[in-house]
Design a binder for these strands. Structure first.
Lengths: 151, 151
DNA sequence: CTCATTGCAAATAATTTGCATGTAA
DNA sequence: TTACATGCAAATTATTTGCAATGAG
């Protein structure tokens, strides 16, 4: 519940009122759950729903679905698909881009940043006359924990 | 229908007999369709099914599904998910790794290879004690055709 | 002959939507 | 008040599976 989260909540409230959308208990609860967990974890709808219901039992799956879609549109969440047939959401922190290392044994997800890769990527795109909107770079393999002596 | 295709067909037949699996008309037709189109295009099951039925109207969707799964297991096809909620297949050419530029306007998919990115990726993984199994690097944006004068 | 393979239809799994009801502004 | 938002249940969408019939070896 650091400074960043306050900013995220504020950004949400601002974005809602800017667009004439309503501030509801459900939206706040779902956003809280997401802002709490979605910075480190990559949460699926089911998991967000489960956590939101711990705080307010009345929250329905469809509301979670629609709220997360909304957060994506507002630029506060990013949808990710890691190929397990599940949409996952992570907090979109302004200016903080990163990519992922995904363990195929324990499903742990690590993040990495490599400016030199980003730079090369720009060149590749330019060479094809391509204007980048976004990208994803996912490395699948076995993490240190899983390949260790006990792994 | 170049040299490579012959090799792919041969590889399929060899793999089938090696494992005591049967060579059927459907499998040959589906593989042909896929080997013809899957090197340049990234075909979904529906499309493969459609094309296969042009050659043999009796071929069912489930057979396409199972045959493509089989080709993946045999190492002749690679499953790709570009986030449009559709599994796509492309021919796995031995030793020829590449990544993708995906146009968000016309859905055209270009391929690229950049050894320096691959090398940096190795370092990133090593720094996290991570053993790479495979990766995907997808760049989404607008292609030259779509951003041109008429675009 | 035998057992892998096929095609159909039905089952899953996850996402998305329709609609009557609730509620923030 | 009055649109927007919610919850439920049902619709979609794509994938996956069960099973009786078929056919390769």
């Amino acid at each position: 519940m650091g400074v960043t989260q306050k900013t995220l909540e504020r950004r949400l409230l601002d974005a809602l009122s800017e667009r004439g959308l309503r501030q509801t208990g459900q939206r706040r609860t779902i956003a809280d759950v997401f802002f709490d967990g979605g910075r480190q974890e990559h949460l699926g709808l089911e998991e967000i729903h489960r956590r939101a219901r711990q705080r307010d039992r009345r929250i329905g799956y469809a509301t979670v679905y629609r709220t997360m879609k909304l957060l994506s549109e507002l630029g506060l969440a990013q949808e990710r698909r890691f190929g397990d047939g599940l949409v996952r959401y992570e907090v979109a922190e302004a200016g903080h881009h990163h990519d992922h290392l995904i363990c195929t044994r324990c499903a742990r997800i690590l993040e990495f940043e490599e400016p030199r890769i980003e730079a090369l990527q720009e060149r590749v795109a330019a060479a094809h006359g391509f204007t980048i909107e976004w990208h994803r770079h996912e490395i699948y393999g076995v993490c240190d924990r899983c390949s260790g002596p006990a792994g």
